[in-house]
């Protein structure tokens, strides 16, 4: 994570909720797109690839590339297809099994 502002929000969120990403608490806008909210919060690497361990972040933002896979409550999900809700527990996936996501 970096502190430099890589992404800017045009309008500040009206309400944020507490979530956890890899054990770290984050306050993200309620109802926001999870991948976008994580980017604004300075999370650039959403996962490491199962093949070489290379870092990846969201690429297509439309549910097609599967580079934004994260683990939410034990299920592999596409962060770009999720909305932020209170108390989400998000972890970097260990592997990205091909039959393990939706």
């Amino acid at each position: 994570m970096s502190t430099a502002l890589t992404f800017l929000e045009l309008t500040p969120p009206s309400r944020t909720v507490r979530v956890e990403f890899d054990g770290q608490p984050l306050d993200l806008p309620l109802g926001a797109n999870l991948a976008a909210a994580l980017m604004v919060a300075g999370v650039h690497t959403l996962r490491k690839t199962p093949v070489s361990g290379a870092p990846r972040g969201a690429f297509c933002m439309m549910g097609a590339c599967f580079d934004c896979l994260v683990d939410i409550d034990g299920v592999t999900r596409q962060a770009c297809m999720q909305q932020v809700t209170e108390g989400l527990v998000i972890r970097r996936t260990k592997t990205a099994g091909q039959n393990d996501a939706s």
Partner: peptide, 20 residues
């Protein structure tokens, strides 16, 4: 990370009001 499609950039702007 940090490389995205231009379409993704558009989606960030439309849906989230987020700009690189």
């Amino acid at each position: 990370p940090g490389v995205m499609t231009a379409g993704a950039g558009q989606i960030l702007l439309k849906q989230s009001g987020v700009l690189p």
